[in-house]
Design a protein around this nucleic acid. Structure first.
Lengths: 321, 321
DNA sequence: CCCCATATGCTCAAAATAAGTATAAGTGTC
DNA sequence: GACACTTATACTTATTTTGAGCATATGGGG
């Protein structure tokens, strides 16, 4: 049994949320992009989080700000290509945020826009076309494909709830549920790569919307991280971890929208952020906005001493537009 | 390195939330009460959750309903009595709920009211006297006790925020933060037992409010579980996991209050539960209430197909009364 | 000086919350 | 059987929060 630590290191730059992936090794035959990972050294590290910070600094030169343990992934067949036996890989997954200004590009890895890996999660410009045009029909077809009527209904209802079809509404935090459903339905690159497709259907075009398959269950770990971050921004001021020291309120809004994957009402956003005491004016202005110059703000650290659960107000659910 | 699975198995009976603890072994010298735990068998179990269900059924005869992974605990000195070296214990903590009707008492273990382990967390009958009379002054004294003014202020502010002193308000979900602070301040039995008390003060009376120390960091795992459950009841119908098949609305309210540790407004509670479609009438009545007979309700399973995040409305924060 | 773009301030209706009052329908007491 | 007492349930009201829009401010570029 081997225990390692996997890190979802995220940031927001140019209004896009990004995650650090280690490039596929072109030397190897079946290499895939993967999350950075390191061993856990029980002798050397006092805590797992400390161990994580250490090897991330060693490997990437990044100094992590916010770090939180996500989940421990230990299912058999995490790596379907290695069913033969061998040591079972157990990973403790972590999510970490770094400031967009600090996010240089470590050698051998890349900052990948996470909505290129989860395009159905990006509702910032309305309901994703992929969802209505491709995934919804394919999911319903998959439901029909079940052997008996009962299973068909169950599949259909599960799809309706997790994807908010009809007037159910989209629950932004359920990223993992949606990924798992798509995996089962054979609609992500990993299902195909894992050889789990049983039907005669050609579903290899999943690559066109999810990109190439990631290593092991790393896209699942990523989905867990995105869901956790979306929940977290509501009651902890983690959004400021990805911001530069000074920013306009609209910058802050776009970063929030990037993580939340949903558009926000501009006037209300600024009203709430200000009234909750999350930010304070720096006194300076930014004239890079193209129109009227915007005031620059900074994070008001005192807010954590004043209110127990300070975060940006983001609706958990929203509807198609 | 050893990996095991620890379980916080909780229920609510007679309006008290309870957790299953394995009794201390009176044969052994330094034995303490502990959470049930079992090994993780990578060869036998397909998933960790499956492994957990298996050994819980074997050891206790309980069939777990809701099960959720909590956190993986891997700090060095989880067991301060075993600093010498030796294998480092890593535990994946789980929280599980069982119905109060199914909760028989397995041999060698006991259902312990969790507010006997965390008396400051029970606000159902108002602000706990222990908090205002004992813990608050002792925490402030501990803050004063810091070596320099800066550290004093930091300690004081940390105590004020996590315990909501002044008009800050109590954040019911921060159970772990509060336990950790009390541990550092030497105000729980474990600090004393771990030999972490440095000051000359006699603080062994922590036993009088926390009871005897639990094994290793098991009270920390418990605190994590309570916090998680309190958050969870708001957006998942987990409260019904501890209810019998039929119940009155006031039964449901008391179970909710038990987990949340806060009183709820009766009329509003029933209005919300009904309007959210969480329950439906069974058509029967209960006359065991002492006054006017109450209608019996059952959980409406369909609610999870209708709304993405169905849960009981419980305020996250509340104030002293 | 006018147009355009964005920032910022303010209003208003709808919805959700919080906290009552009022009434119903049983049990037990005398 | 009248009455006190207990709990259940229905309904009202004030307040806060939210969602969405309109109006105005202030820069840059012709």
């Amino acid at each position: 049994m081997v225990l390692d630590l996997s890190a979802v290191i995220a940031t927001v730059s140019e209004d896009e949320p990004r995650v650090l992936l280690v490039d596929a090794n072109t030397e190897e035959a079946d290499s895939r992009r993967r999350l950075p990972f390191g061993p856990f050294d029980p002798a050397g590290d006092r805590t797992m989080e400390e161990g994580l910070r250490r090897w991330v600094a060693d490997q990437t030169g990044l100094n992590l700000g916010f770090v939180e343990q996500l989940y421990t992934f230990g299912d058999r067949f995490r790596d379907p290509s290695a069913r033969a036996g061998g040591p079972r890989p157990i990973s403790v997954g972590y999510v970490a945020l770094v400031s967009q200004t600090a996010a240089k590009r470590p050698a051998g890895s890349s900052w990948v826009e996470w909505y290129r890996l989860f395009p159905w999660e990006d509702w910032r410009t309305g309901t994703p076309a992929l969802l209505t045009d491709v995934l919804q029909p394919k999911l319903l077809a998959w439901a029909e494909d079940a052997p008996e009527a009962r299973a068909q209904r169950q599949r259909r209802e599960r799809a309706e709830v997790t994807f908010g079809f009809g007037d159910l509404g989209w629950d932004a935090d359920r990223v993992l549920d949606r990924y798992e459903l798509l995996y089962e339905a054979g609609l992500v690159a990993e299902t195909v790569a894992d050889g789990r497709i049983k039907t005669g259907q050609d579903q290899t075009d999943a690559h066109t919307w999810t990109g190439s398959p990631l290593h092991q269950d790393h896209r699942r770990i990523l989905a867990t991280a995105i869901g956790r971050l979306r929940g977290k921004i509501r009651y902890r001021p983690v959004i400021f971890e990805v911001m530069p020291p000074a920013f306009t309120l609209f910058d802050l809004q776009r970063a929030t929208e990037a993580l939340a994957g949903a558009p926000l009402h501009k006037q209300n956003f600024r009203r709430l952020v200000a009234s909750e005491g999350l930010v304070e004016e720096t006194g300076q202005m930014s004239s890079e906005t193209g129109g009227r110059p915007a005031k620059l703000f900074r994070f008001r650290r005192d807010v954590v001493r004043e209110r127990p659960a300070p975060g940006v107000r983001v609706p958990r659910r929203h509807h198609a537009r």
